[in-house]
């Protein structure tokens, strides 16, 4: 199996699907000739041409609004929003239109597209190139939300997302675009949506993370291991609808749980996960569930490593939960 980073793996997935399915088009700011500001779509313009790899005017609302129209026509658009921080001009089209089309039309007009967008901090990007807005899209009915942590998952989940009948918001953790490397199966390869991955089995504490923070959770659990705490680390992969069975099975085994995410703490996905655990596994809990997250502040520039829930903040939470 070839070694790839996440950028290469996503590029590979797009190329495979555009060759297989001629309805697939890529559109967005700078996705064409230059291949995207992160080079994720590099080379696609040369292979598929201006009709399928389209540089658009600088307007997220226009990109998503027209992509919805393309989807209604029968194409399968995969628009790119250059940074998820800039997705909000398209929020109305995503939330009020895309997410509701199937429902509000009684099933007559399903609108299917996959919105790819880099997410998260750790690249010295300040507030406007670092946020993690996943909860703001999970809270509205009708969207699936995905966030891979490895190159192989990025490829397999993207192919699954494009083939899924529902609209998908595909968050790409830009901090590990090139840092995460690994073996990626060649050719067609799908990782099913809605399935979490138990990255490291363990018995004492369940640690749930996704995207770039998965590696911080793994680092913290390694350090905890040196103190005799055996963590089970779950990579959520599909953020919504999430894999409740894997979460609950793990918590029933460990009785202890730490949820990690970059997004602000209040009303974040971590709060929802903890609520679900309380509803479904309350009597199995040995300790209060803990959240290690970003703070309820804008995302800072200089102090970003203080803001992010890195391993040094996850470790004490694991230890405290284990010893409760």
């Amino acid at each position: 199996m070839p070694q790839m980073n996440m950028v290469q793996a996503i590029n590979d997935a797009l190329r495979i699907e555009m060759r297989r399915d001629h309805r697939v088009v890529v559109l967005g700011e700078d996705v064409g000739k230059v291949g995207g500001v992160f080079r994720v779509t590099q080379g696609l313009y040369d292979e598929f041409g201006d009709d399928r790899v389209i540089d658009t005017p600088l307007s997220e609302g226009g990109i998503i609004g027209t992509a919805i129209g393309m989807a209604l026509y029968g194409l399968v658009p995969v628009p790119e929003i250059q940074f998820s921080d800039f997705i909000f001009p398209a929020y109305d089209q995503i939330v009020s239109e895309l997410a509701k089309y199937r429902y509000r039309s009684g099933g007559e007009y399903p609108a299917k597209l996959v919105i790819r967008t880099p997410v998260g901090g750790g690249i010295r990007g300040g507030h406007y190139h670092s946020q993690s807005p996943e909860a703001q899209f999970i809270h509205v009915a009708g969207l699936k939300v995905v966030c891979p942590a490895s190159p192989a998952d990025a490829k397999g989940l993207l192919l699954a997302s494009i083939r899924d009948p529902d609209p998908v918001l595909f968050f790409e953790p830009k901090r590990i675009y090139r840092a995460a490397k690994g073996e990626v199966p060649e050719g067609d390869f799908v990782v099913p949506l809605g399935k979490a991955n138990v990255v490291k089995p363990g018995v004492h504490v369940t640690v749930i993370a996704w995207g770039a923070m998965l590696y911080e959770a793994l680092e913290a659990s390694n350090q905890a291991g040196k103190q005799g705490i055996d963590c089970e680390v779950i990579d959520l992969r599909t953020l919504w609808p999430l894999d409740i069975d894997t979460i609950i099975a793990s918590v029933k085994k460990t009785g202890r749980v730490v949820v990690v995410h970059e997004a602000p703490k209040s009303c974040g996905l971590g709060g929802e996960i903890v609520s679900l655990i309380n509803e479904k596994a309350f009597l199995h809990l040995e300790a209060p569930p803990k959240r290690v997250t970003g703070f309820d502040t804008p995302f800072p520039y200089t102090l970003e490593n203080e803001y992010l829930p890195l391993a040094h903040r996850i470790l004490p939470a694991i230890v405290e939960t284990a010893r409760y």
Binding site: G61, G65, T66, I68, G69, Y73, R104
Partner: peptide, 19 residues
């Protein structure tokens, strides 16, 4: 399909025609 937000269909119509 009709929705209440004002103007959203304008951009979608452009995308449909473009496709």
């Amino acid at each position: 399909s009709i929705s209440s937000p004002i103007g959203t269909q304008i951009t979608q119509a452009a995308g449909f025609a473009w496709a």
